[in-house]
Amino acid sequence: MSHSEKPALAQPRPVRSLSERFDEVFDAHFDEIHRYVAARLGPDAAEDVVAETFLTAFRKRHAYDADRAAVRTWLFGIATKLVGKHRRAEVRALRALGRRGPDRPAAGPEERVLEEVSARRLRPELAAAIAGLNRGERDVLLLMALAGLGHDEIAAVLGVSYGTVGSRLSRARKKLRAALGGVNPMLEEDGRG
C-alpha cells in the first residue's frame, strides 16, 4: 500500500513446492486484490475476476520468482486487465449512479446535508465523470484511489512509463474537477423527494 514500499533487494529464497508458494502469494495478496476488484465490479463479478487473476498467475508461476513487490504489481496488472473485460458493466454501474436515479435522497435535516455537501451532493456527478473517463485514465485513477498504489507502482502494473501515469492522472483529475465544479445547480439537486 505504502508508496515507500520499494522493491526489496532480492533475497535468496529457499526452494519450496509450488503449492506452498502459491498459498504464500495468495495469502499475502488476496485481500487487497479482492478489495480493489470488488470495489470496481461488485462482489459477484469480483469472485470470477479474482479467481481468474490468481489462476492466470498460477499458470505463469515462474514469475513468482520475482521479488514480492513485483508480484504484487504483477497481480494488480492481471486483475486490472481482467477488470477491463467487464468495462461495459463497470461503466453501466457508474452510469446508473450518475443518473439522477431513485438515489436515496440525502435524507434528513438540511444541516446534515450541508455538512457533507461536497461528498453527497456531487456523488452522481462524480460517478458519471468516472464513467466518462477512458479506460487508461480510469485504471490509473482507481489504482491510486482504491488500491492505494503510487505512481511508480501504477507504471509497473500497467506497463506504461512513469510520465504516462502522471499525465493520465492529471487528465482524470481535471475531468473530475470539471464535472464537479461544473455541476449544474440550476438543474440538479440531491434533495430530491
Binding site: D31, H34, R35, P43, A46, S118, A119, L126, M144, R173
Partner: peptide
C-alpha cells in the same frame, strides 16, 4: 477528487468465505 472517489466507492469488507 481522490478522496471523493474513495468515499464514493467505499471499502468492501474482507470476505474470508469468498477467499
Amino acid at each position: 477528487e481522490i478522496t471523493m472517489v474513495r468515499e464514493l466507492y467505499g471499502s468492501p469488507e474482507p470476505d474470508p468465505a469468498a477467499r
